[in-house]
């Protein structure tokens, strides 16, 4: 030792184990339960869509880094894999490969790399891709395969619970009359419903949330606040008129609320930095989701709600400062 030189650096001299690759790995692990439910429900389709999406996203990032930005490819940090998984979680499990490719290119290329890569994107990349696909390929993006474990790539398609609700209400039916057409709440909870790949099972997603909280990857502020906001707000409407509005439990368990609140609104880059800010952001996401679901043209509004709130993040960060020590007036 006496031959080699000592290292000198400013303090602190130790560092936590939880670095970006570890965080990303943690998030990927947290998504696995939801993926397993999907595979159980949709069989090979889920594997196919998720695999392709990850491959395309990581590939797009690698190519953009290597040939456009001419810098060391950054896929080792794992964020492209997460974008790929999240994009897959947000699309039906029977999506053709070319649409997945377009979605991946938009997600990574426009949503992330055009702003300078990890950390600089104002909008959640996976959601940018998802919304782009939803607007460009409305038919393919809303042909949900039914939740039956079919180990082939073809299956019957149908609407999501939220879609049934929206269409039914438009046709002049009442909520109690529509309810029998849908799976039970237990089915919602454990994932036997139609919908996007990752939003099947609230239960699986909650396991993921538990894991991320345990690893201290995220705090409770965004997911809990967002789900609570949706619950309370739909609860108020339901209380006012249960024939026109579905129950709060229905709203929380169906569609993308859980997925959005747990995995997409909590994205480090596109959510506020302070706890106060996180709560305001999550309330905004919740309120917008409910407004779009109940009064908007689309049956589901989580993606739009989160993207809209993403745009407010810089503003929230500027005005909602943490409590400073020793500066109470």
């Amino acid at each position: 030792m006496s031959q080699s030189l000592l290292t000198v650096a400013p303090s602190p001299h130790i560092h936590t184990e939880l670095t970006i690759p570890q965080v990303m790995r943690g998030v990927i692990i947290a998504m696995v339960p939801a993926l397993l439910v999907s595979v159980y429900n949709f069989g090979l389709g889920a594997v196919y869509v998720t695999g392709l999406s990850i491959l395309f996203c990581a590939g797009a990032e690698w190519i953009i880094c290597k040939y456009l930005l001419k810098r060391e490819p950054s896929i080792a940090d794992g964020s492209a894999v997460i974008t790929g998984m999240l994009l897959a979680f947000n699309v039906p499990s029977n999506l053709p490969w070319h649409i997945i490719l377009i979605g991946s290119l938009v997600s990574v290329g426009i949503g992330k790399m055009s702003f300078g890569g990890l950390g600089n994107n104002p909008f959640n990349p996976a959601l940018v891709g998802r919304v782009f696909l939803l607007l460009s390929f409305p038919v393919e993006m809303t042909s949900w395969p039914q939740a039956v474990a079919t180990w082939s790539l073809d299956g019957t398609t149908g609407a999501t619970p939220l879609g049934i609700l929206k269409d039914g209400l438009r046709a002049g039916e009442t909520v109690p009359a529509l309810m029998p057409q849908m799976p039970s709440y237990t089915d919602f909870f454990f994932g036997f419903q139609g919908g996007s790949l990752g939003e099947m099972s609230a239960f699986a997603l909650l396991i993921g949330l538990g894991y991320m909280l345990y690893r201290k990857i995220i705090t409770w502020h965004i997911p809990v606040t967002m789900i609570a906001t949706v619950f309370v707000m739909t609860g108020i409407f339901w209380f006012i008129d249960p024939t026109r509005f579905a129950s709060p439990l229905f709203h929380v368990l169906t569609g993308g609320v859980m997925l959005g609140a747990i995995f997409m609104a909590t994205d480090y880059v596109t959510s506020p930095v302070s706890h106060k800010g996180m709560i305001v952001f999550a309330i905004g996401c919740g309120v917008l989701t409910v407004l779009i679901r109940l009064f908007g043209a689309y049956p589901e509004g989580v993606s739009f709600a989160i993207l809209i709130m993403n745009a407010f993040v810089p503003l929230i960060n500027t005005y909602l400062k943490p409590v400073r020590y020793g500066r109470k007036k």
């Binding site: 030189l5 000592l6 290292t7 000198v8 650096a9 400013p10």
Partner: peptide, 9 residues
């Protein structure tokens, strides 16, 4: 000659 290795920012 270097007498130590700097490892800060």
């Amino acid at each position: 000659k270097k007498t130590n290795v700097y490892d800060g920012a």
